[in-house]
Design a protein around this nucleic acid. Structure first.
Lengths: 125, 125
DNA sequence: GAATCATATTCTTGTAGAAGAATATGATTG
DNA sequence: CAATCATATTCTTCTACAAGAATATGATTC
């Protein structure tokens, strides 16, 4: 039952925040640290947890790693991500995360635009 | 964050089956045992888990206890139960549970009709 | 190739929870 | 009130996982 693996991913606050941010588009790990204000280990381990269960995909771009929601999400995943979006829309923490993301966005627009060939050697976040 | 408590409830197979059955209407514990084919302890403990977190409500009717989804579910709960319904519609296990429920239903229609005053002294399930 | 940057893994500790066995509670019947 | 029925709780064992500290890996730059 894949559904249960999805719910297991969703029952942690940090992971919900990660998924909420990812709903806006691909994000690299250093962004997550800034946006969530959580230590690197924590971010990294929760992203690994999500990746192992197929809720996110990752791709290395030079020195850093970009995470994104699956290109081909299952019906169940799609439904639950939509539901999550719906449930968090008005939540302060989630809104704050998105606001912080927006501030960072301009400096790393290439990540979100999917233009890795423009990647600088060092992350400017 | 109430949302996380909801997801914690949803990440167990037995609890998903219980909620799936409850989506049809109120059910007493002995029904659950028959429908899911699981031991009494297991059913009882998972129902308690759900009750403690507000995903179900219970009401004693003489010798037995009837469980139901909350009369006034939160926005989050409503959304997630709908999503769950959507995701399980085609699943064999969940469909089988509903089929078994339907077979039992006639003998205890009063429970589902909400007519406790007609309750017999002994459950006929 | 040494230093640096970004990310991941390993280790430890603490806690939640799942399952089953045994037992307890609470209501009903005779 | 003793027996029975329906449900709940307690106890034990096992496993998953969250968090942080320390360390490792892998790519880039000088």
């Amino acid at each position: 039952m894949e559904l249960i693996k999805i719910y297991e991913c969703l029952c942690d606050r940090t992971r919900l925040r990660l998924l909420n941010v990812l709903a806006q588009g691909p994000v690299c790990v250093c962004h997550f640290q800034d946006v969530l204000g959580e230590p690197q280990v924590k971010i990294s381990k929760h992203l690994a947890y999500l990746r192992e269960r197929g809720l996110v995909e990752s791709e290395r771009q030079g020195n850093w790693v970009i995470y994104a929601l699956p290109k081909k999400p299952s019906r169940e995943l799609k439904a639950n991500l939509a539901c999550l979006q719906d449930c968090t829309r008005e939540n302060a923490v989630f809104k704050r995360d998105l606001a912080r993301l927006k501030k960072i966005e301009p400096s790393c627009a290439w990540v979100r635009a999917g233009e890795p060939e423009n990647a600088p050697g060092q992350c400017r976040c």
